[in-house]
Design a protein around this nucleic acid. Sequence first.
DNA 1: CTATGGACCTGAATGC
DNA 2: TGCATTCAGGTCCATA
Length: 271
Amino acid sequence: MPELPEVEVTRRGFAAGIRGGRILHARVDPGLRWPLGLAADRLVGTTVGGVDRRGKYLILELDRGLLLIHLGMSGSLSFRPVQPPPGVHDHMDLVTDRGQLRLHDPRRFGAVVWAPGLESPRAQKLLSKLGVEPLSDAFDVRSFHAALKSHHAAIKPVLLSGRVVVGLGNIYASEVLFRAGIRPTVRADRLSLARVERLHAAIRTVLSHAIERGGSTLRDFCGSTGEAGHFLLDAAVYGRAGLPCPVCGTPIKHIRQGQRSSYFCPSCQRF
DNA sequence: CTATGGACCTGAATGC
DNA sequence: TGCATTCAGGTCCATA
């Protein structure tokens, strides 16, 4: 599920509600991607501050250290006054006096990691190689263009890697390239400044639009985490192999790049 | 350093 | 119907 928009919408859904909450009980299953890094009991008695996001990581500030939460492929968070008894795939419960935060993640590619601070090795190991935040001022056309120059692989896997710019997953990488009229197979370093400009604009537009849509759909986040896939309602190319391009009607093509599916319109995205 | 392929894990969809 | 295969919105790690 979670690319940047989903993670951001999730963050907005519970950040205000959990702020100031004192942790009364904490449970984290072993068997997520990485171990928590301390006994869950040690979290009891600490207070939750702000909830930030870096790429697809959520960062819960505690008065002692922080929790990095990643949703992996199938993770979702819900925040409610009281949670029902945990099911098999509910791998984390953070019970506070302001509500209960639960991680549901069938595939267990997600993670909950405690670190003493943002600069600690534990946190830096996960965060240090991340590219720029696409919706921040630091994401500008010139430095984006410059950064792409050092990548000789196809643009689609480069976007997906998160090394240049974070937040684009397999769906939005295809969507953004469609909007920019760029073929997913073009080498990143071969893109002209003009094309990088279009790509830059497409990334901002698509991601912020998706957040707005999700925000309105998930107004009642307190109750649930929303329907998987509802962000896809306006996908132009993703998952639409053989179907007509919404702009020109040409059948959408499906290819594989580094074991991942890519979709594009062979007419609108000529090179 | 960059680029590639395998690994992790479950469940839904597809094929015989 | 039953069983095997393929695919899925992520990303770290080993290898070239």
